[in-house]
Design a protein around this nucleic acid. Sequence first.
DNA 1: CTTAGTTGGTAACGCGTGTTACTAACGCGT
DNA 2: ACGCGTTAGTAACACGCGTTACCAACTAAG
Lengths: 341, 341
Amino acid sequence: MKKRSTSQDVANLAGVSRTTVSLVLNDVKGVNIPVPTRQRVYDAAKNLGYVPNATAQALATQRAQAIGLVMTRSPHHIASDTFLPQILGGLLDVAKRNNFRLLIESIEEERQERVYLELAHAKHIDGMILLTPRIDDKGLKKLGEVGVPAVLMGNLQDSNLCSVDVDNRSAAEQATQYLIDLGHSKIACISNARLSYSAVPDRIFGYQDALSKAGIPLKDSLIGYADFSPQSGFESMNALLSSGEEFSAVFVASDNVAMGAKAALRKAGLRIPDDISIVGFDDVPWSKYSDPPLTTVRLPAQDLASEACLLLLDLMKGHIPEKRNLVLDTQLVIRKSCCEH
Amino acid sequence: MKKRSTSQDVANLAGVSRTTVSLVLNDVKGVNIPVPTRQRVYDAAKNLGYVPNATAQALATQRAQAIGLVMTRSPHHIASDTFLPQILGGLLDVAKRNNFRLLIESIEEERQERVYLELAHAKHIDGMILLTPRIDDKGLKKLGEVGVPAVLMGNLQDSNLCSVDVDNRSAAEQATQYLIDLGHSKIACISNARLSYSAVPDRIFGYQDALSKAGIPLKDSLIGYADFSPQSGFESMNALLSSGEEFSAVFVASDNVAMGAKAALRKAGLRIPDDISIVGFDDVPWSKYSDPPLTTVRLPAQDLASEACLLLLDLMKGHIPEKRNLVLDTQLVIRKSCCEH
DNA sequence: CTTAGTTGGTAACGCGTGTTACTAACGCGT
DNA sequence: ACGCGTTAGTAACACGCGTTACCAACTAAG
């Protein structure tokens, strides 16, 4: 196991100073070093298999060339997050192209307030992307004040953070409206998670907006709450079914949860869509292949991530982006899980 | 936006030297500093909101306190990897507990050979976990020789790397054997990915082992190849169906691919399990809730990740682990997607 | 022949921390 | 008073790199 070689070693081998090595390898402008010398440096570096020490570079330049993906969720919940791959794909793509590394951080709820700042102060990352923000997150607001480059994937009231999101409320309204247009009037709803995640109330509001506009009275007893997992969708639908409430359609604010809900419907002997119509949210890759193919709202997860990353890069360069709060389009993808009533 | 405070600031405020600050805050043993002094340091640090600069620490200690998750896949493929969340969950859990950060790296196939080493030499990470290894990966072998702490999640011939994996071959054999026990003799197979990923041939071999032991002749025309995605499973099954080959059961080496294959079967008017029995592999969280609930081989993804991480931590401490190649158990989970023939 | 400018390159400092080697001051027994 | 161990703490170096300020040597203009 050979010792790593440093820029000093390269300098020695090339017969120049360490400064020259740095100037040549970083291709610094406004310095004139003749080609033969440059070549000597390149050759020496290649010969030694020189790779600059990223840590030392980071310390010297005060830039870590890394961004952090910060999630306020337990490892257990992370494990069942169906979106993570798409988000990671989007982030990696952009980050890599811009020579940034990606650091994953999960922080426990209890000490949110301090952690964001510590993360930023520790300087292991130059900026951060925040996932699934929670409404009651005190730390986030402070973050906005401190001026650490950060982009929210999602939406948060009273926050001056940059953000990238979809319009959850109108997307949910559109999905529900679709059910109303099909003639349904008794429409249930199952949330994607607990209310403390900001996207959750928005989707429920959207569902309620559609009902209200159609003159359909709202009933809290028609709303169930899930917790990301298919399991929770299964349980929530069971609760809804055994509550005695009648409904001919259901809007489930997450495809993943909808998988569980559908299983519960089947178990109860109800056919989809003949007895119950169902609309999902997210359009995860296998929704198209489930039985029946799920009508759902397509969320451009990978694009959201890419855009968030681009925005963050801009922010870190010191630019002031023209749009601080980007909203991407959703699209209702109609498949076979709904029919007329 | 206040300036970050350094250990020097803490030292000034506490009226001691920077050395003392370091000794106190790191709780270095074998040094006697009286409690009152210690308290002054603690107070000063708290007052200033001091957070040590991770980069400088890394440079001084020669340890980045970070591990890398390295994937040899394009961002596009990463986006459709159903396992990533579970693996991430497992890694984060263990890494966090041991005060390590997690860095995600994806490297393009073309320049594998150099990249691993550069990654290690750049010293942004202290060790790495390698995902979905490919058989023809030259870089990996070199990695083993260089002595960089690394753990493979998966299996690779002729490699002296530490690894954590399941016995894909015998798990696939067991799944296929289950179909044989049910009376099937014409059994097709759809791979999880291209053959260049090491787990792929293993699973196919396992499928063939079961057939051979039962005296059933092997037919290459009964084997289809997919590429991780449900889409590819859909296409592969369509090809199989239109090939004219007859079969009453199919072993699909990935639940995700099986989702697509099932859709293709339904589209062809075939009922599951009445007309065709199907067994999957992985037991992703929604397999249980698909229709019919998918019989599959449970892969302890999160545990694999945790164990890989623990092994890596051990390796980085300089320990020589007693088991260099850990093999975790799989389990055939019998649900409703198969019936007797 | 002087002076100003250019070319090619380096010494030296700073980034923020960990760590070793060393030194004063102090108490204690003789 | 003297020697000696202990206590409390510090100065100084190392980590590997980026970068500024500076310097010699050589050329070209006056």
